[in-house]
């Protein structure tokens, strides 16, 4: 007997924690971790709506599988970029990577 709104609230809270991390963290790896939290929150939403609206069809399951695959691809490319930048510039602090600004 868990209302749908509870899942939606928890997922919104997790999303906003991730959002805060993306806004506020200085380290690029930490920003990537916060993005993973946001993707997880989206997946909770998808599966909650699947369970409450269309539990007999695998729509929500299929979409959350795609989100999972995208998250894996994003993590691999993002971390490769971080490592490459670290090798080049000796820093992964997002504020110091501002070449494109000038």
């Amino acid at each position: 007997m868990i209302p749908l709104s509870w899942y939606l609230i928890v997922s919104a809270a997790l999303f906003c924690i991730g959002l805060f991390g993306v806004f506020a963290r200085r380290n690029a790896v930490a920003i990537l971790m916060a993005i993973e939290l946001m993707l997880n929150a989206v997946n909770i939403n998808l599966l909650a709506f699947w369970r409450y609206r269309t539990p007999t069809e695998p729509i929500g399951l299929a979409w959350s599988i795609f989100v999972l695959a995208l998250a894996a691809a994003e993590a691999a490319v993002g971390l490769a970029l971080v490592i490459s930048i670290y090798r080049e510039r000796d820093t992964v602090i997002a504020e110091e990577l501002d070449t494109l600004k000038y």
Partner: peptide, 26 residues
């Protein structure tokens, strides 16, 4: 420090986003 100098603004924005989503959901 782990945070940049926009963290207050970022925190306020996240809280507002959460408040809007929670209000609509409820």
């Amino acid at each position: 420090t782990p945070f940049n100098n926009q963290w207050v603004l970022g925190g306020i924005t996240s809280l507002v986003v959460f408040a809007v989503i929670a209000y609509v959901v409820l």
